[in-house]
Write a protein that binds this DNA or RNA. Structure first.
Lengths: 236, 236
DNA sequence: CGGAGTTTGTTCTCTCGTTCACAAGCTCCT
DNA sequence: AGGAGCTTGTGAACGAGAGAACAAACTCCG
């Protein structure tokens, strides 16, 4: 949960369908969506909150409450229509339209991201790959050539890019971020291990591979200590 | 935030130094650690909560409260000794020892993870790379050869591996997870877009690239709607 | 040595999120 | 048509985390 200070500003509440959905719920909608897609592929047409919650790995009450923020798409005594619900979630998240993204920094991770099929299948189109190393420019990764970072403004403008992905080393992240913002990008997904500062209107989310491992290590260590203490007690 | 139902079970509270640190705090400790390392490299020896909070991108009150769970390592009127604090955080997370990890699924992402330098520098040693595709076995990625999935038990046992990383397609994730658990791994970092079910004593954390993008898309869409509504109002 | 100036550690309040529990509402069977 | 049996949607209780605010404790200067 690493994001900008969460929707303050414009609390104007224009338009009644501007109900406001908790951040925690938003973060789960994509999971429900995935579960629904999987059910749909298996030709399941109706699902109960209990079953869907199980598939998504959450509590069923939480699931129902989450869905209730979107509207009342279920039928009591029956459950939810898989395709109907799927459509409404996708619509709410904004996946009924396509989003153009650029990936900056085509190292190991950038490569992997460029080839990752999970983006395209969910309505994200990689508009360009950018790198600051002139020797890499022109090289092809999958279908796309690597462009020079200097072409950023033009690419963002012509492809209407709203989202930028940063996969550079930490040392370059802030500068790249600034350039993205200057070019007009207003959402950033940051894989570099660095804290980015951005203007108010820009959203940043961060994914940090080594932090996740460190959190696991903490729990792992606790398990080990716990076991050792147990042993000590049983010997005493 | 995708993890096991948070430390229930063995609430035995053996040993008094088993103070229990909130999950939210644990998730931030690695960030503080990184900021401290960076300060240390710049030869800064003392830092105030205000400065460190700024570097970590959090509120200073939150930072102080987080640190207070670990003990009282600061000095009023002065601040924190950078190296001293850094050591104590590293110790708390369990980074004073090395952790062996295995990576399963050497596709695009697995490749990138295998070569990612951020692991080694934080005390995580990649003990082996595994893939189920026999044609890939033997191939080298960086320093390591790809091993067959069947060698898992042996590798986990001989290298004392506690943490497994899953970078397979979603369809294989659960089976790989089961094999990891059977081999003795008790923490899993899952990059596959699938919900894993594991026994009580195993921790799972999930990183999902496309979910992060979807969350950004939602906010992006709201910005767009907000702007449109504003426009409508100003025209009325 | 004493007081001004800092900065931590902690208490208190408030907000946000989770979970329980149940009434409302649907279907199906008799 | 009416009742039994489900399943949703939501009110209310609970718990965790964030942030403000301040007393305690240190340094430094005169």
């Amino acid at each position: 949960m690493t994001t900008a200070p969460s929707r303050r500003g414009g609390r104007t509440r224009v338009g009644r369908f501007d109900r406001d959905i908790p951040d925690a719920t938003i973060a789960r909608l994509p999971i429900y969506l995935r579960a629904l897609t999987s059910l749909s592929e298996r030709e399941v047409s109706t699902v109960s909150s209990e079953e869907l919650a199980e598939a998504a790995g959450v509590n069923s009450a939480k699931l129902r409450k989450d869905l209730s923020y979107l509207g009342t798409y279920g039928t009591r005594g029956v459950g939810y229509d898989v395709d109907y619900l799927r459509y409404h979630i996708a619509r709410e998240i904004g996946l009924t339209q396509d989003w153009a993204v650029v990936i900056v920094g085509i190292g190991n991770l950038g490569h992997a991201l460029a080839k990752y099929s999970g983006f395209a299948s969910r309505g994200f189109r990689v508009a360009a790959l950018l790198d600051s190393d002139p020797r890499r420019v022109g090289e092809r990764v999958g279908d796309l050539p690597i462009s020079a970072l200097d072409d950023l403004d033009e690419i963002v403008a012509s492809s209407d890019v709203a989202i930028g992905v940063i996969a550079t080393p930490a040392s370059a992240a802030q500068e790249v971020c600034d350039r993205l913002v200057a070019a007009g990008v207003s959402s950033v997904l940051n894989f570099a291990p660095a804290v980015l500062s951005v203007p108010e209107h820009v959203d940043v989310r961060k994914v940090d591979l080594s932090i996740e491992l460190q959190i696991l290590a903490y729990h792992e260590q606790r398990k080990a200590i716990g076991a050792a203490e147990q042993l000590k007690v049983s010997l005493a």
